[in-house]
Amino acid sequence: MSAVLYGVLAAFFNGLLVGSLYGLMALGLTLIYRVTKIPNFAFAEYITYGAYAAVAASFVIDPVNSAALLVAGILFATSAGAVIALASDELVFKPLWRRGSEVLQLLVASIGVGLVLRYSLLGAAALTGGKYLEVRFPVTYQTVFSVGGLASITTAHLLAITSMVLFAIVLHLLFTRTRLGKAMRATASNPTLAQITGINVILVRRITWLMAGALASFAGFTYSYYNPVNPESGWITLLWIFSAAIMGGFTFYGVLLSGLLLGIAENVVGFLANYYLGIGSEYNPVIALVTLVTVLMVRPEGLIRMESLVVARRV
């Protein structure tokens, strides 16, 4: 195989992994956005905290038993993410929403929450001598099969892809088929009326945040399973996540596909640009940014909408 083809294949495999992570992460962002209309910038931090919580699990659990460690990592991560997400709503977003705050104020609030979470973690890592400024989950992925030796499919791929597809299906069915999911959408669509019809909108909101936080931090765990994580890891992926969510029009399947496409584009386009034009990978985020801006300018309702139900967009 020629070097280019080989490189493209390796980039494609890597893109699959990264893209599934983007998709997985964007699902939680979408869930929050669909139910509460908050474009939540603090979402990135739920991912980071999830990864850190997973690593924290390895301090508690005997690291010899890697299966137990994986399970503990997932449990630690998801519970930490769920709790932090819920707390950020209870303490900040819900009081603002009750007062009738505009979306933009909620966005600003989420920036504030994000700053507090991210820099507290950075501060704590610095206070403890800096050895937690980068962490890694002690159990790492294994290669499942490989072409040549560089282009390979690993257990991290399997974990990311399976969970992304699974969660997207679950969320889609939840929203379109179940009482709870419809109650979530009803709450989003008209909270006062939802309350009149007997929906416990506060409970629905709490469930939403718990689910989204758990999803984010599960993604964070997955991230830490294949990559070292630092307090800014979530923040750095946030632009990709927002791009995927907006490109997918905040529909679960659309967001999944968009995340995958963006991850593959990042790696394959990045590889080709490097190979032929000598452009370094540090420019890769430009792909996400340009996608984001272009989609918003050309089709703000999303490029790949995969739901017969349309999220009504405020003008």
Partner: peptide, 16 residues
């Protein structure tokens, strides 16, 4: 009404 729900879902939510 719930504008983002279908007619049927609106009625289902009415009977929540």
């Amino acid at each position: 009404i719930f504008p983002d729900l279908t007619v049927r879902e609106n009625l289902e939510m009415g009977a929540y």
